[in-house]
């Protein structure tokens, strides 16, 4: 199973050059059963990553391009009166899929954004008083432009919390960029990517990851981190228990991707920026809160009492 994961990484690496770390983070996020938010400037490869993930994970996927005039029914679906049968019949929207690509999610109004809320959290939707379950597994990979851009609606904090990780891709390295120049648009290769993991395997993996060992020492470290976000002045509000749990879950998934059965502090440190930044404050991912997290990781002792002050 682990081979499949590294294979998936190399497959995605073919279309997203020089971004191995981000690709692995994204994979870990999905393996942990969490939703992924990719935030960056237009043209940095967000959609490419989302597409490539959907392809190698072998999931049914739907893509929705969010616009400012979209309504919730455009995502969830709508009941239409059928004159022949004299009954309302439900026409399901794009959310009824295993992997939903929500492109430029912050271009639409809060009303439509929050329609996704129930779907992401409960894995089900309610229409006309009827609850309909979503297929399993169900992931949302959303992309968004930085909020400073024109015509964006900042995602509400409650919805940000629904995403396990928020990552940004950043500019490619000079070498990778040269390869892009010579090879042409990487998106043309997406259809050629091979499927590495099945939907059933994904569900199984999610369960396996939950059982990874997180020793007392590690939990101690996690707690020291969480306490630091709560009781130190740098943070306006600290990490919630759900946030802390998300951090542990993401760290476990990362440990699994790294091929270990147990979690080490590095796992937490690696995933922490992606998991914590959008939870401790709504600040820009490239801005202040990321620096705060880096400082936090430097300040909190990995081994209790281990340093000699």
């Amino acid at each position: 199973m682990r081979d499949n994961i590294s294979k998936a990484c190399t497959e995605i690496g073919k279309v997203l050059l020089g971004k191995e770390h981000e690709v692995k983070l994204a994979l870990a996020c999905l393996l942990a059963g969490g939703h992924l938010l990719i935030e960056d400037l237009p043209g940095m490869g967000k959609t490419t990553l989302a597409h490539a993930l959907a392809k190698v994970l072998g999931l049914d996927y739907q893509r929705v391009q969010f616009t400012s005039d979209m309504l919730p029914a455009d995502i969830i679906g709508v009941s239409i009166f059928d004159a022949n049968t004299s009954q309302f019949s439900f026409h399901s929207g794009p959310v009824f899929t295993q992997l939903l690509l929500a492109d430029e999610i912050n271009r639409t109004t809060p009303k439509t954004q929050s329609a996704l809320l129930e779907a992401m959290e409960e894995q089900q939707v309610s229409i006309d008083g009827e609850t309909r379950p979503l297929p399993q597994p169900f992931f949302v990979i959303a992309t968004q432009n930085p909020e400073s851009q024109m015509g964006t609606f900042a995602l509400p904090e409650s919805q940000l919390d629904r995403f396990l990780m928020r990552i940004s891709l950043g500019y490619p390295s000079p070498e990778a960029e040269r390869m892009i120049f010579s090879g042409g648009d990487p998106r043309q290769y997406i259809p050629t990517l091979s499927r590495c993991i099945s939907a059933e395997q994904l569900i199984d993996l999610k369960r396996q990851i939950r059982t990874l060992t997180a020793s007392d020492s590690l939990i101690d470290y996690l707690q020291r981190l969480v306490y630091a976000t709560r009781f130190e002045q740098d943070f306006t509000h600290g990490l919630s228990p759900r946030g802390a749990l998300a951090l542990l879950q993401a760290a476990k998934a990362w440990a699994y991707v790294e091929g270990r059965d147990y979690v080490i502090p590095e796992d937490i440190q690696t995933v922490a920026p992606a998991v914590i930044t959008h939870r401790v404050s709504g600040a820009d991912v490239t801005g202040g809160s990321q620096r705060l997290i880096a400082e936090l990781l430097e300040r909190v002792d990995v081994v209790a009492g281990g340093t000699n002050s």
């Binding site: 007392d216 020492s217 080490i264 502090p265 590095e266 440190q269 936090l296 990781l297 430097e298 300040r299 909190v300 002792d301 990995v302 081994v303 209790a304 009492g305 281990g306 340093t307 000699n308």
Partner: peptide, 29 residues
Amino acid sequence: LPPAELAYIQLCRKLQRIGLTRNMGEAPR
């Protein structure tokens, strides 16, 4: 402290003596 961390602290002390002090947030690796 758990015994493993106590042992690791000993290791850190030995390395500190030769001028290699571990930083606070520095993970073992």
